[in-house]
Design a protein around this nucleic acid. Sequence first.
RNA 1: GCCGACGUAGCUCAGGGGUAGAGUACUUCCUUGGUAAGGAAGGGGUCACGGGUUCAAAUCCCGUCGUUGGCUCCA
Length: 648
Amino acid sequence: MSQQIKITLPDGSERKYEKGTNGLQIAASISEGLARNVLAAKVNGQVWDATRPIEEDSQLQLLTWNDGEGKNTFWHSSAHLLAEALEALYPGIKFGIGPPIETGFYYDVDFGDHTLDGSELEKIEQKMIELAREKNEYIRKAISKKDAIAYYQEKGDEYKLDLLEGLEDGSITFYEQGNFTDLCRGPHIPNTGFIKAVKLTNIAGAYWRGDENRKMLTRIYGVTFPKAKELQEYLTMLEEAKKRDHRKIGRELELFTFSEKVGQGLPLWLPKGTLLRERLVAFMKKAQDKSGYEQVTTPHIGHKALYETSGHYEKYGKDSFQPIATPHEGEEFLLKPMNCPHHCEIYKHKPRSYKDLPIRYAEFGTVYRYEQSGELHGLTRVRGFTQDDAHIFCCPEQVKEEFIKVIDLVLYVFKALGFEDYTAQVSLRDPENKQKYIGTDEAWEKAESAIIEAASEKGLETVTELGEAAFYGPKLDFMVKDALGRKWQLGTIQVDYNLPERFELEYIGSDNSKHRPVMIHRAPFGSLERFVAVLIEHCAGNFPLWLAPEQLIILPISEKFKEYAEQVKAQLDDAGISGSIDNRDEKIGRKIRDAEVKKVPFMLIVGEKEAAEERLSVRKHGEGDLGSHTVDGFIQYFQGIIAESLSK
RNA sequence: GCCGACGUAGCUCAGGGGUAGAGUACUUCCUUGGUAAGGAAGGGGUCACGGGUUCAAAUCCCGUCGUUGGCUCCA
C-alpha cells in the first residue's frame, strides 16, 4: 500500500497524492493546460524540477512563464540547450558558466583557437531549435565529487574543475539532456520541447570569474521563448528601444555631438542642447534656493596638494588624468575630479559658529575623470561632465534632518520630470573588507544608520548593497533604467565623516569649543550629461514643454502671411515665450511634418483667416489640430501648462 | 584597459582590386499651397588615418584612432 502525502496549493486548498508524485503530475491532475505550461515547481519555498518526486507533505506552487522564477528556470535550461548545440557543432570546446539573466541567459565558452564569428550564430540557433524539437528531458543525477572531477578531467574542462573545487561532496548534481551533461544545481524545465523560439543576441568577451588576470572566454548571450510570437514581440520592443536611444535622438534634435579631435568622452553641447541644460540648471537652482543653498564657483583645476589632503590623489592619482605642471616652477595641478575639496576650502576661509550651520554650498561644477576607453558610452559615461553638486556642512545632530531634506529634493526633481520607475539603493561598506575604506568604524556606523533611518522615515523603498559604498562614506543612490534596460545611477546622497577630518574643518559650538562638522555630498541629477541621456530615453525626445529646447514654431501658410507671423512672434516674445518662424518656401503639410519630426511641442499655423481675425491655429505635437485661439489665449494656455508641470 | 564587431556625402545606407552610388538633408529656380513629404536642376566624399601587397587599393593584409556590444573599473 502506497503512502499518501498532503500538498497545499497557494490558494490554501489541500490535495492528497501518492508519495513520490511530482509537480508535473500534480499539474496534470488539476488541468491539462496547466501541465503543458508548468516549467518548475516551488516546493516549500525552493524551486525544484517539476519532474522531481515530492516525498513529504509540502507547500507547492507550480511555476509557469508568468512567474519570474519560471522564466529563470526556462532561460537556465535554454543555456544548457545552447551548450548542447555548441558541443555538437564545435566538439572539444570547454564551458564556464551559463546562468539566466534579467532577460535571457548567456554561456561562457572557451573555443580554444576558434574565434566565433557573429555569422555563426544563426547556425547555432538552428541547431538549438533542432535539439529542442527532440523534446529531450532534463535528467537530474546526484554524483559524487570524485566522479564529477573524474568526468571533467577526462573532458579536460578546467573551468568546471575550478567550479567543482568550491562544491561540497554530497550536494553535487549533474543535469543531462540529449547528449549533453552539465554540472548544475538546477532546477530545469521538464524537457527541451518547451523552448520554441531562440535568438542569440550578441557575443562578448568575459573574463573567467570576472578576473581580468584570467583567461577571457567567449560569452554568448541569447533569449528564448515558449512561443514564437513572444520572440517577435521582444524583437519589436528592442527596435522601439533603439529609436529612443539618446545618442540617436541627440543627433537628430541637434542637442550634442562628439568630435574625435576634441577627444573621446568629451561631449560638445550644441545650442539646443545647451538650452535644455540651462533650463534644467535654472530649475535646480530655483529648487535649491528655496532649500537654503548658496551658489559658489570654483576653478577647473586644483593644486595637487589639495587632492593629497583629500586622499583622492593617493587613491585615484595613478588612474586619473595626470598632473599639469607649471612651466618654470614645476608646480603640479590636477584637473578636478570632484568639487568637494574646493568646497572644503571655501568652508575654511573663515571661522564658523554652530549658529552658521548647516551651510549648503552648491555648484554646477564641471569635473574630469579618466574613464577607461571601453567604458565610454554616449552621454551616460563621459570623461568631462557637470555635476549638480552641493556639499552640506552640518553638525552631527543635523545629519539625519539634512539627509531627509535632500531626499525630498531628489524626489521633487524626479516627480517634476516624470521619473516614476527608479530604485533607491543604500550602499554600505563591505564588512569583510574594511581596510578598503577611509575613516573610523565609529564614524561609519553613525553614517550608515543615519542613512537607513532617513530613508525609512521618508518611506523610501530601498535595496541595500554591501561593499558598494564610496571609499569615504556610505551613500544612497537613485538608479533609473535607460531604453535598453541598462541601469544608471542618477541622484546620489553621500555622508562623509572623512573629508572634514582630513581638511580639519571646524566650528565653534555653543560650549565655546571646537567641533568637527559632518559633510553630505549630494547631486539630485548626478551629472547633467547622464541625466539628459536618461531623460531623452525616458521621454523619447518629447520633452515636457518647460524643458523643450524648441517650444513652438510659427508656420505661415504662404509667404503672404510672413508679416502677420512676425507680429505674432513679437507678441510671444513680449510674453517671454520664444519661438521661430518657418519661412521656407514649402507647403503647410511639409512644414507640419518637419516640425512633428523635430518634436516641437506647438505649431502655430497662420494664414489668411488667422491674419484677418488676429488669431492662431494651434497644433500640438503628436495630437494634432487644437483649433483656433487668440494670441493672448494661447499665451495663457501655454504658460498654464508650464506652471502646472512645475507645481507638482 | 581586455575580447568581438564596425568606420563610404551632414544623416541612413548600398557597392567593392581598374581613380565612387541611392534616399534624405543642403543650394538655386518654378510653385503661394490650409494640418505629417509639391516639382525641376545643382553642389558636396583623400571611401577614418598611417603603412604594406599589387601595374593598379575605397576594396586584400598590418597598425593607429574612433564608434559600438559586453567584461573589468568607477571619487
